[in-house]
Design a protein around this nucleic acid. Sequence first.
DNA 1: TCCAAAATGAGAATAGTTATCGTTGGCTTG
DNA 2: CAAGCCAACGATAACTATTCTCATTTTGGA
Lengths: 151, 151
Amino acid sequence: MRDSADLKKAGLKATLPRLKILTILEGAKERHMSAEDVYKALLDSGEEVGLATVYRVLTQFETAGLVIRHNFEGGRAVFELNQGHHHDHMVCVECGKVFEFYDPAIEARQRKVAETNGFVMEEHSLYIYGTCDGLKKSGVCSKKTRSSTLV
Amino acid sequence: MRDSADLKKAGLKATLPRLKILTILEGAKERHMSAEDVYKALLDSGEEVGLATVYRVLTQFETAGLVIRHNFEGGRAVFELNQGHHHDHMVCVECGKVFEFYDPAIEARQRKVAETNGFVMEEHSLYIYGTCDGLKKSGVCSKKTRSSTLV
DNA sequence: TCCAAAATGAGAATAGTTATCGTTGGCTTG
DNA sequence: CAAGCCAACGATAACTATTCTCATTTTGGA
Ligand SMILES: [Mn+2]
Ligand SMILES: [Mn+2]
Ligand SMILES: [Zn+2]
Ligand SMILES: [Zn+2]
């Protein structure tokens, strides 16, 4: 549970909008949310926060290491709370659900490839696009929200 | 060398703009070009092609499998001719140079991860961000254009 | 050569995001 | 706890990348 102490620690004033956005990110059913998603969730919960503030704060949170930004194909960024452990993503192009995974072998090979080429890796993004098991089983992806599965 | 025959094969009329864009992509020093890059290259070589046409044609080429589109971080798409063999990318965040690599072990593990989760993979994107050896050696990335190195 | 259909190019429109700037409010000081 | 400074906010303008619209031009085939 994040609170104003986490914001202070990150060098950010504990303002109402920031706390509200943090609360949304923590309580969301979908872990990976666009700025628009966060904004709508705020509206739905009766909070008054400007869209510009949502964008501004999400970027500040990213800089502070509180959230991670992803650029899945489609041209809109999504954000998720930094859970402290890196993971990669599979995105269903049919229903949009996002699955998480971590593969030590892939991580190791990436470091190897970078090293071999004299490249100093800072970060990486690995996105697998395809269709989830809901599609395979029943012909349509289930709407049931199983947004995150860390294997 | 691509020509009108390749366009016909792809179900596209061999129009002048399409041929010119193909020529630019083939002759470019940088293999990975944004739509704007292609547009400017056309202007530089004295060709009159509208920016809208560049975007339209690049998308058509992508659909036809003639080019591959990448979404590196930064919010602008880049394109490269489809060379027939898949590869992934390392992008230097300092000088912007793009390096290519292919790692069978990573490819295999990706398929494994997808399969294990009942996910039918259609495509994937793996981008490694960091600084290239030019920076490490001399303090600055060399401007020498070594845009592609398939390891 | 002639024509219908497809493609082009100029510019308007759109989506996502960032910048501007006057107002508000968190937080330290006295 | 009042005062005041400065960071943060919110409305909206601006921006960037990309797509759409539509009148005009080309292409490829008859
Ligand atoms: Mn995630
Ligand atoms: Mn490439
Ligand atoms: Zn699905
Ligand atoms: Zn570099």
